[in-house]
Nucleic acid binder design. Structure first.
Lengths: 335, 335
DNA sequence: CCTTAAAAATGAAACGTTTAATTAAAACAA
DNA sequence: TTGTTTTAATTAAACGTTTCATTTTTAAGG
């Protein structure tokens, strides 16, 4: 009573052992439920630990075991509306397993990506969830044997969680065809990333097959359309748009509105990503949904499995996308 | 050469010391630039460390010093569009000072808030940046002497970073008055949080003074308007709306559109928060901007200062807001 | 050249755990 | 009873740092 909870400091394992009248080793075994400890002793130790409010010092544990039960999440840009939901689910899923998450944002620069990874590795994270900014294997020399899960990219060395973008691109194109459109423009997002390119390429392919591809341009990942794109969008050459990213699609809607065109009466639009903005627009943006929430959860599951079994064979998980109909698709206007 | 970089494992301080032909102590002093080490020796140690690619083991360092150079960021909800920018800037500012950030999201539950804090404290974070979900001091018994910075709330025990919401509420009301409106409705966000309540109350107060307050309702923080609010908004009783949160404001615009009313021709709207969605809407949402980026940066600065000087007197920083004009304010329609 | 002070370098303890190796105690078989 | 096995508990080393107390070396002063 007077000796136990004194000293103001957080109680250490030694304090627990002392108070319980056992050795530090026994206390450790009891608390971790390993080794051979008598039933009575175990209960007693647990009880004392609870009474003292003992919390193991994770730094010490980490140093001894080499495991921090922390993981790192490396994202290109937190303010990109696609990522917060992903991060949220990663954090939650990790918490379920008593892992904490260092979140890092690399602002689109490979150097920042490397710096972030370095810092995390030095901190001793048990694994990394990495959404690379491009197709390069930027972290190749850094990671050593560290478990890494790569999102939405290809990588020969790591577990992968990907999206069936082809099917998404096709769905969008087919939906517009089915609505009766025959002059459809395609706007792709960044072309330096394969998964992004493919979205639009598979759209374009479908459209070509139906002889319905009006044009295929591309635009940076941004709400603002580049002049050439803005022009094409509004010059009447297409009655519908298949856009590789919601943010660009919203930008397109904006441009059209500014030029007095109506969506979807004059021109139909389908986006890709299902970012939260889309549901808030008026009319709501029809788009291809990516199950980010599940991806986040599955990312930590897969990573934790890899941490537990480093030698298991590499995994590659592909998530299906779905078309979500809102208000931006209609039949083409009568000529 | 053959002895140094062998063993596959990351080199430890001992390896560096050995390779440099000095004691571990000297190596430590040299690398940390403390103690008395001869110039030549210091340079030599540094050089060897670099050659071996030595990185201090932060877990060990943490255990020895009790400092992890990690901080925790506790937010209510990452998918709330207000927070990603904050988180991003916290992460960046922290990185500048070689700190890493555990990000956590409490989903609006005080228990989750406590659990998150517990976990972080157990991890030994050097401090916490905390955006509480309500006005309660949920973490009161947990934090002990740990440096904590509280955002957008009041708290008697911690450093504070707040927003001059009163002035924001007034600005919005005055702008609408200035545009000529005389029947203005106020929609406040959650009323259980003082900083949120005040936004709308100071709007209402200004309007009352001008005898221009049509009504004052409130709505959950959500895009969907509650029936009573939706009705009031569209029944012609107000020619302008002063809304305590952008998300609700966008919901209001949506409701109005669905009922065939135009913004701003029929009804003007001003929001609060300046969430990124607002700029993307058509027309862009006029709103009160909160400098989240600066707040994030200042939060880590203040927290780090507190970590360095735990006894310094408590700080309270109040950020100014600004009105940002976009497209949702116009004179009232002629009757 | 000797003494003393200052500077540089070192040895070893400590931080809070885990865990291998060891000993002590209890249970069992003969 | 006695030896043997099983079970329970302990001792002590180790993880990679920092840092105090000490020793060794160098420089300074006479």
């Amino acid at each position: 009573m007077t000796k136990d909870e004194n000293s103001g400091k957080r109680p250490t394992l030694k304090d627990v052992a002392l108070a319980a009248g056992v050795s530090v080793a026994t206390a450790s075994y009891a608390l971790n439920d390993v080794g051979s400890v008598g039933g009575d002793t175990r209960r007693h130790v647990l009880e004392v630990a609870a009474r003292l409010g003992y919390r193991p010092n994770l730094s010490a544990k980490a140093m001894r075991t080499g495991k921090t039960s922390a993981i790192g999440l490396i994202l290109p840009d937190l303010t990109n509306p696609f990522f917060p939901a992903l991060a949220q689910n990663v954090v939650h899923a990790a918490r379920e397993s008593a892992y904490s998450v260092f979140v890092t944002d690399t602002q689109g620069s490979p150097e920042a990506e490397r710096a972030a990874a370095q810092a995390l590795i030095q901190r001793g994270v048990d694994g990394l969830i990495w959404f690379p900014i491009n197709d390069e294997d930027t972290l190749a020399e850094l990671t050593g044997g560290l478990p890494v899960l790569v999102l939405d990219r290809d990588n020969p060395r790591h577990d992968l969680i990907q999206i069936d973008v082809d099917s998404g691109g096709r769905m969008a194109a087919e939906r517009l065809i089915r609505a009766g459109h025959r002059r459809i423009g395609v706007i792709s997002g960044p072309t330096d990333v394969r998964s992004s390119r493919q979205r639009s390429e598979s759209s374009a392919e479908v459209l070509r097959r139906h002889d319905a591809l009006a044009w295929h341009l591309h635009n940076a990942y941004s709400f603002d359309l580049e002049p050439a794109v803005a022009a094409a969008v509004a010059d009447g050459s297409a009655t519908a748009l298949c856009v590789g990213a919601d943010l660009i699609a919203l930008g397109a809607i904006n441009t059209l509105r500014q030029r007095g065109l109506r969506v979807p009466e004059d021109i139909s639009i389908i986006g890709f990503d299902n970012i939260p903005y889309g549901a808030l627009a008026f009319p709501g943006l029809s788009t291809i949904n990516i199950p980010v929430e599940e991806m986040g959860i599955e990312a930590v599951n897969t990573l934790l499995r890899r941490i537990a079994k480093p030698t298991e064979s590499r995994r590659r998980l592909v998530f299906d996308v779905t078309y979500v109909e809102r208000g931006t698709v209609a039949p083409p206007p009568a000529p």
